[in-house]
């Protein structure tokens, strides 16, 4: 790593990630101060309690988050969407918030050599949900969308990958909606299976109610799958070649799915356009932004 930070003695930066680490970060900062060292505290917000609970935060967790954000010298959020939540729901001064969008290492997908045939694609069109089955990710919304699509697209099936506290409810709800045979479940996936499921899918649908970023959308793109995402997501700020709807607009999401399944021209334009957009994505970019934010943090304390 080239030297991107000024060489300074007594250099300490405390960079902590999400609420579970905030109390430790605050304590560390106080200790450093007592030892006479400059120790700016940076808190990095990957998700808030507002996102995780779809707007019904646990006051205990919320309190820790708020305290951490107030104590922080600088805040990094993974999107403008999250920045707005931090301003609106936590009363934080916008001046100290920096946005660093997440990324993926696209070159790893490009060199990827998983070339397989999927016989199921001859008979079925596959709509993919992937994520924890929690209220934040909107698996219940996905089911309602699936119900609408299944009625006019007889070849469509819906694959839901991931586990979480809502899993039993979702399985039962699928049967209650009468689409028990159209919705298939996989447990948590990783490695080649994860890549496989993206590639088998004709479209990836992210139904999140509140998604600070949404890296799965980038993974889907990298695997050549068109994406439909919600407006309430950070990834919608960095990708243009996608379809985007409000999370509550079930009918619009269903409309999009039907269109993507029906028209290969649309699939191709979305796929190729999005691939072009992520071609130069890598984790280097957010890493460099973080380094420049470290510099900003140090300058608060003067030279």
């Amino acid at each position: 790593m080239p030297r991107l930070l000024p060489e300074r003695r007594n250099l300490i930066i405390i960079h902590c990630h999400d609420w579970m680490t905030y109390p430790a970060g605050i304590v560390a900062k106080n200790i450093a101060r007592r030892l006479g060292k400059d120790a700016p505290l940076i808190v990095h917000v990957h998700a808030t309690e507002i996102d995780r609970t779809a707007g019904n935060p646990n006051p205990f967790v919320y309190g820790i988050e708020k305290k951490g954000m107030k104590e922080a010298d600088l805040i990094i959020t993974v999107s403008n969407y999250t920045k707005d939540i931090v301003i609106r729901n936590y009363g934080i001064d916008p001046e100290k918030i920096h946005v660093v969008h997440n990324s993926i290492d696209y070159f790893e997908f490009e060199s990827e050599k998983l070339i397989e045939d999927y016989p199921i694609k001859k008979y079925r069109k596959i709509v993919l949900f992937l994520g924890r089955m929690t209220i934040q990710k909107g698996p219940d919304h996905f089911l309602r969308v699936a119900k609408m699509v299944s009625e006019i697209e007889p070849d469509a099936i819906f694959v839901m990958g991931g586990s979480g506290d809502m899993f039993p409810y979702i399985v039962e709800e699928a049967t209650r909606l009468g689409i028990g045979d159209r919705v298939l479940f996989t447990d948590f996936l990783s490695g080649d299976d994860l890549k496989r499921i993206y590639r088998i899918a004709d479209v990836y649908v992210m139904t999140s109610v509140s998604e600070p970023f949404g890296i799965t959308a980038l993974e889907a793109i990298a695997n050549g799958t068109p994406i439909i995402i919600t407006k309430q997501s950070g990834v919608s700020e960095v990708i243009r070649n996608c379809l985007i709807a409000d999370f509550w607009d079930i009918e619009m999401i269903a409309n999009y799915i039907v269109a993507v399944l029906r028209y290969k021209e649309l699939r191709n334009c979305l796929r190729n356009g999005a691939l072009e957009e992520i071609r130069n994505f890598s984790w280097d970019i957010p890493a460099r932004k973080c380094l420049s934010i470290y510099n900003d943090a140090l300058s608060i304390y003067g030279k």
Binding site: R240, L243, C269
Partner: peptide, 13 residues
């Protein structure tokens, strides 16, 4: 429309 894909979808519908 917000996006070119949206106008295609509306048109085809």
């Amino acid at each position: 429309f917000d996006r070119p894909h949206d106008s295609f979808i509306a048109f085809m519908n």
